[in-house]
Simulated assay, not measured.
Amino acid sequence: MPRPATRCSVPPATARAADGYAYTELAEPARTAAAALAEECALAISYNSLSQAVMMVTPQDLHDFVIGFSLSSGLIDSVDDIYDLQLHGDGVARHAEVQIASRAFWALKRQRRQLAGSSGCGLCGVEALEQALPALTALPGSPLPPAAHLLGLRERIADAQTLARHSGAVHAALFVDGSGAIALCREDIGRHNALDKLIGALPGAGTAPAAGFVVVTSRCSLELIHKAVRARIASLVCLSAPTALTVQWARAHRLNLIHLPHHSAPRVYSPAPAHS
C-alpha cells in the first residue's frame, strides 16, 4: 500500500533562531556560524473585499507599501481615494483590506475584466500590452538635482539601509530632500516593493515628490519608470545602468533619469544631452 504523501507545512515564525540561521562554510577547515537573513511574507491585498494581488514582501512598512502599490499601479489616482486600510495576520501570511472610493473601484473592476483572458505564464493579448506599456501623463519637467547632492551618496545610502546592514539581500528606495539630505528610506526584498513603500510614505511625511529626488539601489526597470511617473517624482537616480527602453520612456515623459556609477561622475540620460 503506498504511503500517504507527506504534507508540507510552513514553519512558524517563532522557529527562527534569535541569533540567525546556522550555516557551515564549504572549506577546510569547515567553520560553523550563524547569520541574520532577510525576512519575507506573503501579503494578500483586497480592495472593497475583492482580492487583487498576493505579493512577497519584507514585512516592514506594509502600510506604506499598500498605499504606494495602489498609487503606482494606477489603481487609485490619489491617496484620498483610500478610505480605510487594515492589516491582518502575522508571520508569513498577511492580508491588507483596503476600502477605496466607488469611482476607483469601478475602474479597478473594469481593468480586471479586460485582463480576464490573461494566461497563467504572464500577461498576454492587446489589453495586457496596454498594461505593460501604459499611456501615462508626462511630467511638467523639473531642473536636475544639484551635483553636490550626489556627492558621497552611495556611502550615505549604505548608512541609511538598516535592514541591509543587518541581513543583506534587500533593495532600497530613498528620498533626498531639497537640502540634499536623505529624508526617507524604505527597504524590501523586491525593488518594486521598495519604491512602492517609499511612494506610500511620502504623503504621510508631507513631502512633495518633486521637492527632491528619489534613489533606487537596484537596476532601473521600465516598471520603476512607470511608478515614478505615476507618483509625479521629478528625478530618479539609479545605482545600476538603465536599459535603452527606460531611457526612452524617461525622456518621453520628462522624468530626469540619472545613473550614479561606482567610480565616475553621475550620468544624466534624461533629459537628452543637447548633442544627442
Rank of each mutant, 00 (worst) to 15 (best):
A5M: 06
A208S: 10
L163S: 10
Q52S: 12
L151Q: 11
S70W: 08
A272S: 13
A53Y: 05
L43M: 12
F213S: 02
P145M: 03
R251T: 10
E223N: 10
N193G: 12
T24R: 13
L85D: 01
D84C: 03
V170P: 10
G200V: 07
A44Q: 11
A18M: 04
G117N: 13
E97H: 10
G122K: 07
A13E: 13
A93Y: 10
L133I: 08
D81I: 03
G89C: 03
V57A: 00
S240G: 06
V54N: 02
A164Y: 11
S46M: 05
K197G: 01
A27M: 06
T243Y: 09
L75Y: 15
A228P: 04
E155M: 06
A160E: 13
A172M: 10
H171A: 05
P209Q: 03
T137R: 10
V98T: 05
L108I: 14
L115A: 12
I189C: 13
A34T: 13
S264W: 01
Q248T: 05
A35L: 08
A241M: 11
A172T: 09
A22N: 03
P266L: 03
L239D: 02
A17N: 12
Q111T: 09
G74H: 06
A241T: 11
G89T: 02
I157C: 12
Q111W: 00
E223V: 13
V10H: 06
A13T: 05
L222M: 04
A244L: 14
D84T: 04
V214E: 02
S70M: 08
G152T: 11
V79I: 13
E40A: 14
T246C: 15
R16F: 15
R112A: 14
T162R: 14
G206C: 08
A27W: 03
A36V: 09
Q114W: 08
Y23N: 00
D177I: 08
F105K: 04
N48A: 06
A241H: 07
A231H: 08
